[in-house]
């Protein structure tokens, strides 16, 4: 009996702590005013991962400011939902609590959403990163969003090729799929378009969270002669740390990673999901609950290249980057990877 009690106590304590780490309301709803728009988001890693989840959190904070504060937009989130079953339960909970928009921020949540969305026809859902809104399956309350991350990848690649002295460039990726693959393919294309003789070594470490392996992959690249590196997903902070130790240049993506290593981060492709979120909110307020897919691109401002002000980037490299951005926007540069 005592054992059972203790077990229950422990599990309860543990779950309580896990829950504390997660969902957190930003502000209690104001009582008298008109009801604010309510968004809930479920994301696979932490809101300060300097990558995928942080980009969504930052966008929601910005959207809240743009819309006029917590009185107009209220949002809650569950982070670290790397277990898809837990994420599915959270999505269902939020939907049944009557949120206007429930965002499943992770391609792995797709099949869960496909099951949940039809049960809540009055609620809007959004799923990213993907272009699939499940419209063909007769589901009409799901929006889709994606980042054309190959575009910023290409721009980063152009700069990387110009900055590399050794002609060897290392890439640390998580799993060869989705957003990571797009970015890396674009990066590679950008390097090779600028310097066809350059060698781009790509390493997929098979994990989104194994920082130690990401660090060791970066060391491997350096040993293979790389003097410029990039990488994507939240475990790359391990690789950035190694790059910093060895004075190897780094290009970031998904969020601004300059603060972690101001001396070696050259530039970051930064996602601004408000470009996708704003039209969703407008649509929902008009009564359209789904069926649209949105893309972040350099042209619509959803993707931007942010240069690290602390890094002394040669003017001709920056010019080349700006020209490349222009080229991608006006269509004169076509990136030889598909937008899926």
């Amino acid at each position: 009996m005592r054992r059972l009690f203790l077990f229950a106590l422990l599990v309860g304590l543990a779950l309580g702590l896990v829950a504390c780490g997660g969902g957190e309301a930003t502000q209690a709803p104001a009582a008298e005013e008109a009801r604010p728009f309510r968004i809930a988001v479920v994301m696979p890693s932490a809101i300060n991962d300097m990558a995928f989840s942080q980009s969504m959190y930052d966008a929601l904070v910005k959207l809240q400011q743009d819309m006029g504060g917590p009185a107009k937009l209220e949002f809650v989130y569950s982070e670290n939902m790397y277990v898809v079953d837990d994420a599915a339960a959270a999505i269902r909970d939020y939907a049944s609590q009557g949120y206007d928009l429930v965002i499943a921020h992770g391609s792995q949540y797709g099949s869960s959403l496909q099951e949940i969305a039809p049960d809540f026809p009055e609620t809007s859902f959004a799923w990213g990163t993907t272009v699939d809104t499940f419209k063909e399956m007769g589901i009409d309350n799901v929006f889709a969003y994606e980042a054309r991350s190959e575009q910023g990848g290409y721009v980063n690649g152009v700069m990387a090729a110009l900055l590399s002295q050794s002609g060897v460039i290392g890439v640390v990726g998580p799993i060869e799929t989705g957003d990571a693959k797009l970015y890396i393919d674009g990066f590679k294309a950008g390097v090779l378009a600028t310097n066809p003789d350059a060698q781009v070594n790509v390493n997929y470490i098979g994990s989104f969270s194994d920082t130690a392996l990401a660090a060791e992959a970066a060391k491997t690249h350096i040993q293979a002669g790389a003097d410029v590196m990039t990488g994507t997903a939240q475990m790359v902070v391990g690789a950035i740390s190694v790059a910093k130790d060895h004075g190897v240049l780094w290009f970031g993506t998904q969020a601004d990673q300059s603060s972690l290593a101001p001396e070696i981060v050259v530039a970051n492709q930064v996602y601004d999901w408000t470009v996708a979120l704003k039209p969703m909110v407008e649509n929902i307020q008009k009564g359209v609950r789904g069926g649209e897919a949105y893309s972040l691109t350099l042209a619509n401002g959803g993707l931007t290249i942010q240069y690290n002000p602390a890094f002394n980037l040669p003017a001709e490299v920056k010019d080349a980057a700006q020209k490349t951005i222009q080229g991608i926007i006006d269509g004169s540069i076509q990136i030889p990877v598909g937008g899926e």
Partner: peptide
């Protein structure tokens, strides 16, 4: 076995919570 899993979840949750409250962002 069960209490070990409990301690795993405890450590996972508490380290995460402390990280968010005390640091807030990845730093070196």
């Amino acid at each position: 076995g069960i209490s070990g899993i409990g301690f795993y979840l405890f450590g996972l949750g508490l380290s995460d919570l402390l990280f968010q409250k005390l640091l807030g962002t990845v730093d070196s």
